[in-house]
Design a protein around this nucleic acid. Sequence first.
DNA 1: ACAAAAGTGTTGGATTTACACCCATGA
DNA 2: TCATGGGTGTAAATCCAACACTTTTGT
Lengths: 222, 222
Amino acid sequence: MTPAAGPRAVVAVDIALCTVRDGALHVLVGQTRTGPFAGWWTLPGGLVRRDETLDDAAARELSAQTGIRDVYLEQLYTFGHPARDPQGRVVSVAYVGLVPPERLDDVRAGDKYAQVAWRPVADLPALAYDHASVVATAVERLRGKVAYTNLVYALLPPAFTLGELQSMYEAVLGRTLDRRNFRKKLLSLGLLKPLGRTRRGPHRPAALYGFRRRRPMVVEIL
Amino acid sequence: MTPAAGPRAVVAVDIALCTVRDGALHVLVGQTRTGPFAGWWTLPGGLVRRDETLDDAAARELSAQTGIRDVYLEQLYTFGHPARDPQGRVVSVAYVGLVPPERLDDVRAGDKYAQVAWRPVADLPALAYDHASVVATAVERLRGKVAYTNLVYALLPPAFTLGELQSMYEAVLGRTLDRRNFRKKLLSLGLLKPLGRTRRGPHRPAALYGFRRRRPMVVEIL
DNA sequence: ACAAAAGTGTTGGATTTACACCCATGA
DNA sequence: TCATGGGTGTAAATCCAACACTTTTGT
């Protein structure tokens, strides 16, 4: 470990920013404006600066390229195949991000992108680099983690119905859950606080709930 | 993501090579011979070469510095605080490695180290860089993962008794388990094959078992 | 004989699953 | 009135936790 002498590599971060929309997991992709992958879709990301942490770099790039700030971000995996970038050795530290639905439309394309778009993970366009693997790894991580953490709080608005909460789990897990058992379990965990308000619609009004604590905790949910 | 232009960082790998000895988790550390941390204990690791994958780099450095080859290795987390190395920007991709006890004595110090030693994770010497965090993260990962995978196969010799298997779980998890329930559960999972031999000692001979499949699988164990 | 670990079943409680009907609203 | 989702309880099955005595060997 003698930094002065060794071969150098560029370190980048890439972010798989996820959300659930219309009952399906989506990820944010941007259409690159220039460079060898001009016209291709990629995950937001970019080079790590000399004086910032990896977490800071992920938040900064995400904000610069998509306008999205202050979301849940966690380091996912580091992709370092020597040929993953045709231009040279780039080691990419991938992150998963989670955005609640009320902020989906805050996204705007930064300089690097002609456009950004939410795409269902089940129907992605061809992605540049190894970004398809990044998305696959992110989905795997989410699937695994929602079952034993309260992570979905980062995918939900401040107030939601139990039906919406259940749809969230179903979308991430890709399977349906029994409604009565789901309610019993979640209410028994004490993670939620009833807000005393209701959501109205073309049906019986539904009680609204919020998370008692909006920060990551491990709790056996399913 | 324009590799040609950006600021450069050095990419390294560090390996927390773990084993269970005398009923306790141990990690392999080496006493650095030269450089600014001469005399300090560090985890084996080193710079990633231009043309190798991260996994290859981890295996190569481990083999070069400790003589240990062909062990279970999995990527753990990437540490990139700008000040983690006093000499410059080094982003380190950390790995966890697992070695079975019959290979503990294959370790020999490579050129970089004056000596290498197995130390209990509960009683580590001061480690250079952020290697204490790496070990802590590795232990956390192992604790979490043994409960829902068959990972312990990588910590056990080809033949072992159920008692030894149980001690392995107890050492990693840091708690005791009920013997009868443990046996019932593990035998019911069908992960083990009885070898038809026994281990003798100053007590009743114990049946020997091996893992049916020595590769990572997710199985709910505890 | 003794020490040390191996081997072995049952029971009660808790948890999980499966399952069907009525309710309140907006259109 | 109809369509839509909200709200609710029970019984069976399964899983999990707790628990003690006998066996075989080496010394």
